[in-house]
Structures are given as C-alpha cells and as structure tokens.
Amino acid sequence: MLELRLVQGSLLKKVLEATKDLVTDANFDCSATGFSLQAMDSSHVALVALLLRSEGFEHYRCDRNISMGMNLNNMSKMLKCAGNDDIITIKGDDGSDTVTFMFESPNQDKISDFEMKLMDIDSEHLGIPEAEYHAIVKMPSSEFQRICKDLSSIGDTVVISVTKEGVKFSTRGDIGTANIVCRQNKTVDKPEEATIIEMNEPVSLTFALRYLNSFTKATPLSESVTVSLSSELPVVVEYKIADMGYIRFYLAPKIED
C-alpha cells in the first residue's frame, strides 16, 4: 500500500516538465526516505536524480519499498490535468499494474482521479559516489537558463571555466564566438539573486549545450542553481526543491579527441 499526499501538487507537475524530455521511461522508487527517481537519457550521456523526502509530504504511507515504472510523457499528460493549486495524492497497491493520481482543488469542490498503467522497466541504476568538486558555482537559475539559451544560438558546445576571476561560459560556431563571464556577487537584496563561486582549483570542461538547455527546464522549481565541476567528473546541475529535496542532473563532459 502506497499513499503520498503532496499539498503543493504543482511541484510534481514541474518535476515532470523538467524530466520528460530527457528521459522517456523511468522507475519511481518509493521508500521510507521518500519518493525518488534515477534515470539516464537514451544515449547514457545525462542522468537525472530526483528526491522528494517523505517529510515534505502531508501524508506519506509506504508499507514496503516499491518501484513503479512509468512513461513520463503519459504521466505528464495526466498531471497536466491537475490545477496548479491542487493537492496531488499518489496511490498504489502492492502487485497492482496501475498507479492512481488524485487531484483535489484547494476548496475541495472538485476531486478527480486518474489511473495510469505501469510498465516494467529494466532499471540501470548507477552508483554516484560523494565527490569533492574543484569548483561550485551557485547562481540565479534564470541567469543560467538565459546563458545556456543564448549560447546555443551560437554554438553546440559550451566551455565552462572557473578561475578566481569568475565563471566563464564560452562557445563557438559558424557565425562567430561568444564569452560570458559571471563574477561573484554577494551584494544583492535576496540570497537567491547572488552568484557565489567556491573554487578549490581552476577547472575547465566542455559540455553539449543541448543537454544543459534540457536541464534548465527545472528552472521553475528553484530560484537558484548549483553547478559543481571537477576535471575528472560529470558536471552536476542541482535545483533544490523547497523543503523537499532536489533534482540533480549529471552530464558527462566532452573530451578533445
């Protein structure tokens, strides 16, 4: 028996919008810790890891660990039928091949339930060790989104370099080149508007902009984004989900041939 009641149902809607273009099918894992997902894109270049902690749900019942395979496009279709202010409850029964999404309007005058077929998915779970990163950049998520979008109109890849001067995003394409440098800026009205650069050592890595642009679909989930870089590791782009957990995207770097 599984019953997860999420008062801020819009969070789940936003999570689906952030993941459905990167991953087609995924197993949602439910345990005492929370509701989580780990899935790679079809080319095994990018990975999404989601955690919504059990404490973030108004009601969280998960009698035993369960994994539910879902087609994210179909799940998104169903969640789009929920209002932005709706409370969403996810229900499942042991051994059932369906999951139910129940939507309640804030004043309880409309209650809907949508039953979706589950699917068997061979999960390819990767072990991601805790790592020390050479540099961690925290910046407004809208700014990161803007940079990725702007640079992708010039080139296909971006070089992200962190030095003591700041973080530089560079691209080149047929029409020319572009460089955007963001310096640390803590003198802002709100902490989420700050750009904070923690650097242990300089790092420079190349990434496909197509994937970074896809990650920025998580922008509505958080005012700020954290980009963690190490020369021997995939980049981690993390959006914190208020009081609940996170959505993290991992992207393997490109290397010079």
């Binding site: 095994h44 270049v45 990767l126 890849t157 995939p234 393997a252 490109k254 290397i255 010079e256 041939d257």
Partner: peptide
Amino acid sequence: TPMQNDLGEFFAMV
C-alpha cells in the same frame, strides 16, 4: 569536435 563521454565511464552500474 570534442568527443562525447559516456556516464558509464565515470559511474559504475549497481
């Protein structure tokens, strides 16, 4: 053009 790495080169399957 730089070559694209695969995540499997960094993280092991569990």
